[in-house]
Simulated assay, not measured.
Amino acid sequence: MAQNNLKKINILLADDHHLVRDGIKSLLLKYNDFNVVGESGNGVEAMEILKATEEPIDLVLADINMPEMNGLELCKQINEHHPKTKVIMLSMLDHEKYVSQALQAGAKGYLLKSVNEEELIFSIKQVMYNSFYVCAELAYKLLSKSLMGVRIGVSQNQQVKVDFSSREIEILELIADGYTNLEIAEKLFTSKRTVEGHRLQMISKTGVRNTAALIKYCLIQGVLKANLPD
Protein backbone atom coordinates (compact mmCIF):
# COMPACT_ATOMS: atom_id res chain seq x y z
CA MET A 1 0.00 0.00 0.00
CA ALA A 2 1.43 3.42 -1.02
CA GLN A 3 2.43 5.63 1.89
CA ASN A 4 1.10 9.18 2.03
CA ASN A 5 4.10 11.46 1.53
CA LEU A 6 2.20 14.71 1.78
CA LYS A 7 3.89 17.05 4.26
CA LYS A 8 1.80 18.09 7.22
CA ILE A 9 1.22 21.78 7.87
CA ASN A 10 3.11 22.76 11.02
CA ILE A 11 1.04 25.18 13.08
CA LEU A 12 1.83 27.37 16.07
CA LEU A 13 -1.03 28.65 18.25
CA ALA A 14 -0.69 32.10 19.85
CA ASP A 15 -3.50 33.03 22.21
CA ASP A 16 -3.44 34.11 25.84
CA HIS A 17 -6.51 32.00 26.66
CA HIS A 18 -5.46 28.45 27.46
CA LEU A 19 -8.93 27.03 26.87
CA VAL A 20 -9.08 28.61 23.40
CA ARG A 21 -5.74 27.05 22.47
CA ASP A 22 -6.86 23.66 23.78
CA GLY A 23 -10.06 23.84 21.74
CA ILE A 24 -8.29 24.76 18.51
CA LYS A 25 -5.57 22.18 19.07
CA SER A 26 -8.01 19.34 19.67
CA LEU A 27 -9.92 20.35 16.55
CA LEU A 28 -6.84 20.53 14.31
CA LEU A 29 -5.42 17.22 15.53
CA LYS A 30 -8.50 15.44 14.17
CA TYR A 31 -7.03 16.01 10.70
CA ASN A 32 -3.96 14.29 9.27
CA ASP A 33 -3.05 17.46 7.37
CA PHE A 34 -2.02 19.40 10.47
CA ASN A 35 0.61 19.21 13.15
CA VAL A 36 0.41 21.59 16.15
CA VAL A 37 4.09 22.12 16.98
CA GLY A 38 3.75 24.74 19.69
CA GLU A 39 1.57 26.98 21.83
CA SER A 40 2.19 30.44 23.25
CA GLY A 41 0.30 32.93 25.41
CA ASN A 42 1.77 36.05 23.79
CA GLY A 43 3.81 37.29 20.85
CA VAL A 44 7.14 37.18 22.67
CA GLU A 45 6.73 33.48 23.47
CA ALA A 46 5.63 32.82 19.90
CA MET A 47 8.79 34.44 18.49
CA GLU A 48 10.94 32.38 20.87
CA ILE A 49 9.27 29.18 19.65
CA LEU A 50 9.75 30.20 16.02
CA LYS A 51 13.47 30.76 16.64
CA ALA A 52 13.95 27.54 18.61
CA THR A 53 11.96 25.10 16.46
CA GLU A 54 14.19 23.12 14.11
CA GLU A 55 11.44 22.16 11.68
CA PRO A 56 9.99 25.24 9.94
CA ILE A 57 6.61 26.45 11.15
CA ASP A 58 4.27 26.94 8.21
CA LEU A 59 1.45 28.85 9.89
CA VAL A 60 0.73 30.85 13.03
CA LEU A 61 -2.84 31.21 14.26
CA ALA A 62 -2.70 34.34 16.40
CA ASP A 63 -5.12 36.39 18.46
CA ILE A 64 -4.80 40.18 18.21
CA ASN A 65 -5.20 41.00 21.91
CA MET A 66 -2.29 39.41 23.77
CA PRO A 67 -0.01 40.72 26.55
CA GLU A 68 3.64 41.73 26.04
CA MET A 69 3.41 41.56 22.23
CA ASN A 70 0.02 41.64 20.48
CA GLY A 71 -0.91 39.73 17.36
CA LEU A 72 -0.36 42.62 14.98
CA GLU A 73 3.19 43.24 16.22
CA LEU A 74 3.82 39.49 16.17
CA CYS A 75 2.70 39.40 12.55
CA LYS A 76 5.13 42.18 11.65
CA GLN A 77 7.97 40.37 13.41
CA ILE A 78 7.16 37.09 11.66
CA ASN A 79 7.10 38.77 8.25
CA GLU A 80 10.46 40.38 8.95
CA HIS A 81 12.30 37.41 10.49
CA HIS A 82 10.36 34.37 9.21
CA PRO A 83 8.91 35.45 5.84
CA LYS A 84 7.96 31.91 4.82
CA THR A 85 5.66 31.54 7.84
CA LYS A 86 2.10 32.65 7.18
CA VAL A 87 -0.16 34.26 9.76
CA ILE A 88 -3.92 34.03 10.22
CA MET A 89 -5.54 36.34 12.75
CA LEU A 90 -8.18 34.61 14.87
CA SER A 91 -10.01 37.27 16.84
CA MET A 92 -13.27 38.44 18.39
CA LEU A 93 -12.69 41.91 16.88
CA ASP A 94 -14.95 42.38 13.85
CA HIS A 95 -14.31 46.04 12.97
CA GLU A 96 -12.84 46.70 9.53
CA LYS A 97 -9.98 48.72 11.00
CA TYR A 98 -8.54 45.55 12.55
CA VAL A 99 -8.78 43.71 9.23
CA SER A 100 -6.95 46.61 7.60
CA GLN A 101 -4.28 46.66 10.32
CA ALA A 102 -3.83 42.91 9.99
CA LEU A 103 -3.35 43.22 6.23
CA GLN A 104 -0.83 46.00 6.69
CA ALA A 105 1.02 43.87 9.22
CA GLY A 106 1.26 41.08 6.64
CA ALA A 107 -1.45 38.65 7.77
CA LYS A 108 -2.77 36.28 5.12
CA GLY A 109 -6.11 35.64 6.77
CA TYR A 110 -8.58 37.03 9.28
CA LEU A 111 -11.09 34.86 11.10
CA LEU A 112 -13.60 35.60 13.80
CA LYS A 113 -13.57 33.18 16.72
CA SER A 114 -17.18 32.36 15.90
CA VAL A 115 -16.13 30.42 12.74
CA ASN A 116 -17.11 26.79 12.58
CA GLU A 117 -14.71 23.88 12.18
CA GLU A 118 -15.26 23.51 8.45
CA GLU A 119 -14.42 27.15 7.71
CA LEU A 120 -11.34 27.11 9.95
CA ILE A 121 -9.92 24.11 8.09
CA PHE A 122 -10.81 25.60 4.71
CA SER A 123 -9.19 28.94 5.58
CA ILE A 124 -5.90 27.32 6.60
CA LYS A 125 -5.70 25.43 3.31
CA GLN A 126 -6.60 28.54 1.32
CA VAL A 127 -3.89 30.58 3.00
CA MET A 128 -1.33 27.82 2.50
CA TYR A 129 -2.14 27.92 -1.23
CA ASN A 130 -1.06 31.59 -1.24
CA SER A 131 -4.59 33.00 -1.04
CA PHE A 132 -5.84 35.63 1.40
CA TYR A 133 -8.92 34.60 3.36
CA VAL A 134 -11.49 36.56 5.38
CA CYS A 135 -14.18 34.54 7.13
CA ALA A 136 -17.64 34.57 5.54
CA GLU A 137 -19.34 36.40 8.42
CA LEU A 138 -16.85 39.25 8.33
CA ALA A 139 -16.71 39.38 4.52
CA TYR A 140 -20.50 39.70 4.40
CA LYS A 141 -20.45 42.49 6.99
CA LEU A 142 -17.74 44.44 5.15
CA LEU A 143 -19.44 43.98 1.78
CA SER A 144 -22.80 45.09 3.16
CA LYS A 145 -21.23 48.22 4.63
CA SER A 146 -19.43 48.96 1.38
CA LEU A 147 -22.62 48.55 -0.67
CA MET A 148 -24.51 50.78 1.74
CA GLY A 149 -21.88 53.48 1.21
CA VAL A 150 -22.22 53.13 -2.56
CA ARG A 151 -26.01 53.45 -2.35
CA ILE A 152 -25.73 56.56 -0.19
CA GLY A 153 -23.18 58.05 -2.59
CA VAL A 154 -25.36 57.35 -5.61
CA SER A 155 -28.37 58.80 -3.85
CA GLN A 156 -26.48 62.00 -3.02
CA ASN A 157 -25.02 62.33 -6.50
CA GLN A 158 -28.37 61.81 -8.18
CA GLN A 159 -30.22 64.52 -6.27
CA VAL A 160 -32.66 66.27 -8.57
CA LYS A 161 -32.09 69.99 -8.83
CA VAL A 162 -35.04 71.83 -7.29
CA ASP A 163 -36.59 74.88 -8.93
CA PHE A 164 -37.17 77.82 -6.59
CA SER A 165 -39.43 80.81 -7.19
CA SER A 166 -37.93 84.30 -7.32
CA ARG A 167 -39.43 85.04 -3.89
CA GLU A 168 -37.92 81.85 -2.43
CA ILE A 169 -34.51 82.82 -3.79
CA GLU A 170 -34.86 86.28 -2.24
CA ILE A 171 -35.62 84.66 1.11
CA LEU A 172 -32.77 82.20 0.70
CA GLU A 173 -30.28 84.99 0.07
CA LEU A 174 -31.44 86.87 3.16
CA ILE A 175 -31.30 83.69 5.29
CA ALA A 176 -27.77 83.11 4.05
CA ASP A 177 -26.88 86.68 5.03
CA GLY A 178 -28.01 85.93 8.59
CA TYR A 179 -31.35 87.75 8.72
CA THR A 180 -34.10 86.44 11.01
CA ASN A 181 -37.60 85.61 9.82
CA LEU A 182 -38.91 88.89 11.25
CA GLU A 183 -36.16 90.96 9.60
CA ILE A 184 -36.77 89.22 6.27
CA ALA A 185 -40.50 89.88 6.57
CA GLU A 186 -39.87 93.61 7.14
CA LYS A 187 -37.49 93.81 4.16
CA LEU A 188 -39.92 92.04 1.83
CA PHE A 189 -43.05 93.75 3.18
CA THR A 190 -44.70 90.50 4.17
CA SER A 191 -45.51 88.62 7.37
CA LYS A 192 -43.15 86.57 9.50
CA ARG A 193 -45.52 83.60 9.09
CA THR A 194 -45.25 83.84 5.28
CA VAL A 195 -41.46 83.85 5.46
CA GLU A 196 -41.47 80.83 7.76
CA GLY A 197 -43.88 79.08 5.36
CA HIS A 198 -41.49 79.65 2.45
CA ARG A 199 -38.58 78.35 4.51
CA LEU A 200 -40.42 75.15 5.46
CA GLN A 201 -41.58 74.68 1.88
CA MET A 202 -37.98 74.89 0.60
CA ILE A 203 -36.81 72.40 3.23
CA SER A 204 -39.60 70.06 2.12
CA LYS A 205 -38.73 70.52 -1.58
CA THR A 206 -35.08 69.65 -1.10
CA GLY A 207 -35.58 66.90 1.45
CA VAL A 208 -32.96 68.30 3.81
CA ARG A 209 -33.22 68.31 7.60
CA ASN A 210 -32.89 71.95 8.59
CA THR A 211 -32.08 75.49 7.44
CA ALA A 212 -28.30 75.01 7.61
CA ALA A 213 -28.58 71.96 5.35
CA LEU A 214 -30.86 73.94 3.03
CA ILE A 215 -28.22 76.66 2.59
CA LYS A 216 -25.52 74.05 2.02
CA TYR A 217 -27.68 72.32 -0.59
CA CYS A 218 -28.35 75.59 -2.43
CA LEU A 219 -24.66 76.49 -2.45
CA ILE A 220 -23.74 73.09 -3.88
CA GLN A 221 -26.50 73.28 -6.51
CA GLY A 222 -25.51 76.81 -7.49
CA VAL A 223 -28.80 78.35 -6.38
CA LEU A 224 -26.82 80.60 -4.04
CA LYS A 225 -23.43 82.11 -4.66
CA ALA A 226 -20.90 82.07 -1.84
CA ASN A 227 -20.03 85.63 -0.82
CA LEU A 228 -16.28 85.45 -0.32
CA PRO A 229 -14.31 88.39 1.14
CA ASP A 230 -12.24 90.42 -1.30
Rank of each mutant, 00 (worst) to 15 (best):
L147I: 11
P83Q: 08
Q3M: 14
K192G: 02
K187D: 11
I175F: 11
Y110S: 07
V208F: 02
E54H: 13
C218K: 04
D33T: 06
E45F: 03
T206A: 04
P83W: 05
E119F: 09
Y179H: 12
I78G: 00
N5E: 07
I215P: 04
N5C: 09
E170Q: 14
E186V: 14
M89Y: 01
Q77A: 15
L93Y: 06
T190M: 12
I184Q: 06
V223I: 14
F132K: 13
G178F: 05
D230K: 14
V154M: 14
L93Q: 10
V134G: 10
F164N: 02
C218N: 08
T85F: 08
Q201K: 11
T190G: 02
Q101W: 07
T206D: 03
M47I: 15
G222Q: 08
L172C: 05
N4T: 06
A185Y: 02
K76D: 00
E39Q: 12
E183K: 09
Q159I: 07
A2Q: 15
V195C: 03
L74T: 03
V44P: 01
N10M: 00
R199Q: 14
C135I: 04
N116C: 02
E80R: 15
K7L: 10
L74I: 06
Q104E: 15
G178W: 05
K86V: 03
G153C: 03
M128G: 03
E119K: 11
V195W: 07
C218E: 03
I121D: 10
N181W: 06
A62C: 10
D22S: 14
K7H: 12
R209S: 13
L90D: 02
L142S: 04
V115Q: 00
S40R: 08
L120C: 00
L200K: 15
Q159W: 10
Y98E: 09
K205Y: 06
E168C: 06
I9G: 09
L120K: 04
R193A: 15
I175V: 09
I215L: 09
K125D: 00
L120D: 02
H81W: 09
N79R: 13
Y140P: 00
Q159N: 05
G197I: 01
Y179R: 05
L147H: 06
P83T: 02
K25F: 02
L90T: 03
R21E: 02
D33G: 02
H95T: 07
E39I: 04
Q201F: 10
K113C: 07
L172T: 12
E96R: 12
Q77H: 11
Y31M: 05
L29A: 10
V160F: 06
Y217T: 06
D177W: 05
P56R: 04
I24L: 12
A105W: 01
I88C: 05
E54L: 13
F164S: 02
D33M: 01
R167S: 09
A107W: 01
V20T: 15
D22M: 13
K187W: 07
E186I: 14
L72E: 01
N70H: 04
T194R: 09
A52E: 10
V99L: 15
I24T: 05
L188V: 06
A176F: 12
T211Q: 05
T53Y: 08
M148W: 09
K216W: 06
A46W: 09
H198L: 00
L19H: 09
A46Y: 13
I175A: 05
L12Y: 03
